[in-house]
Design a protein around this nucleic acid. Structure first.
Lengths: 174, 174
DNA sequence: CGATAAAATGAGTCATGACTCAGGTTTCAG
DNA sequence: CTGAAACCTGAGTCATGACTCATTTTATCG
C-alpha cells in the first residue's frame, strides 16, 4: 500500500529541511528546528525517522552518494579540491566523512571505491606516485575537509595547503 | 595574601584531574567527573574555575605551552610527527589546536612563532621549499592531528600520510 | 458523502549537565 | 587556643533537547 499523499509530502519536506539545517549547524541542529523549517510538528519528524540519528544518517548517505556521483565525472585533484570547497560551505560533508559512530552502510565504501578509480587513473597518467594507496588519499581528503571547515580556511589558504598535498602525491619532478 | 593550603592543594588536584579527563573524553568530559577524579565536590571546581570553559582553557593553555616547549628542541618534521602521535593518545592537543571559539590568549600565537622558527631552520637546511608559509604548516598540522585522532589512524596510516605531507613540503628531488 | 485508518499535532516527560548557595568545616593569625 | 574568614559540600535549580502519546485532523475508499 502506498503511503498517504500528505505523508509523502511531509517526508520530502523534512528531508529538505534537515539537509539545510545539518548543512548549516551540523549534527547540532535541533529536531525542533528541522520540524519548524519543514512546516511540521516535532512528532511528525519522529514518525518518519524514529531517531534524530536516523535522520542524520539519511542525510549523510545522500551527501556521500552525491560525492560518489561527482567523483565519477572528475579527476582526483579536482575532486579533492571540490570536496574541500564544499566542506567550507556545508557541514554535512565532513559529518559524513568523519562520523565514526554513525553507520552509513556502504555509502562510504562506495565513495572509497570511486576514489580508488580516480587514483588509479591519476597513477596511470603519471600524476601520482605509484606507491600511494587509497587510505592516505581518504585520510588526507578527510583531514583537509574537516580542518578547512572548522578552521574557516580562506580560499587562499585552501589553495596553498592543497598545493602541498598535491605535490606530496605527485612523482618527483613533475 | 597567599591562598589557604587546602585551596591550593585542591586547585592542583582539579587541574590534574581535568587534564586526565579532557585527555580521555575531550571537552565532553563532565565537570562532575572531574570533581570526582579530583576527590572534591562540584562546587569546589566552580570555586576555582568560574566556568567549565575556563577550566578547559586552562588545560588547553598548558597543552599549548607544552607543545611550544617541545618545538623549541626539535625539528619541523619530527615535531609534526610527534604532535600527530600525541593527538592519537590524548584529545587535548586537538581541542587546543582546533577550538575556534575558546580564547587561549597568545598561547597559539607562541606556538605558531615557535613553528615558524622550525620552518625557517628547515628552509635554510634545504629541507623545505622556500615558498611554504607557516599558515600551511599550521593548517596541515592541525588537519592531520585532528583527523588522525578522530579517525583512529593506525601507526602505519599515520606514517604514510605524513610521508605525503612531508614530500609536499620538500623541494623537488630532495 | 460518511466511516475509518493513517497521519499530524504539540504539550508533556525524562535525562543530562552546567551552575548555585545555605549551611557545615578547616585553616591560620593573633 | 579561638574566632572569623576562607573553603568546601552536595542537594537543588535551570536550561536544553530528544522523544512520547492522547487527542485531533485528514486522506481515501466504498
Amino acid at each position: 500500500m502506498t503511503p498517504r499523499a500528505d505523508a509523502e509530502r511531509n517526508r520530502a519536506a523534512i528531508l529538505a529541511a534537515a539537509t539545510e539545517a545539518f548543512a548549516e549547524h551540523g549534527p547540532a541542529a535541533t529536531t525542533e528546528k528541522v520540524a519548524i523549517r519543514a512546516g511540521v510538528a516535532v512528532g511528525t519528524v519522529f514518525r518518519h525517522f524514529p531517531t534524530k540519528d536516523a535522520l542524520l544518517v539519511a542525510i549523510m548517505k545522500e551527501s556521500l552518494h552525491g560525492l560518489s556521483r561527482r567523483a565519477a565525472e572528475s579527476t582526483l585533484f579536482d575532486f579533492i579540491a571540490a570536496v574541500v570547497d564544499e566542506a567550507v560551505r556545508t557541514r554535512t560533508v565532513v559529518t559524513a566523512l568523519a562520523a565514526p559512530t554513525l553507520d552509513v552502510g556502504d555509502a562510504l565504501r562506495s565513495l572509497t571505491d570511486e576514489i580508488e578509480r580516480l587514483l588509479t587513473k591519476a597513477r596511470d597518467a603519471g600524476e601520482v606516485r605509484s606507491d600511494v594507496r587509497v587510505d592516505e588519499v581518504m585520510a588526507l581528503l578527510t583531514a583537509a575537509a574537516q580542518a578547512a571547515q572548522q578552521g574557516g580556511w580562506s580560499e587562499d589558504l585552501r589553495r596553498r595547503t592543497l598545493a602541498v598535498i598535491f605535490r606530496g602525491l605527485a612523482p618527483w619532478g613533475s
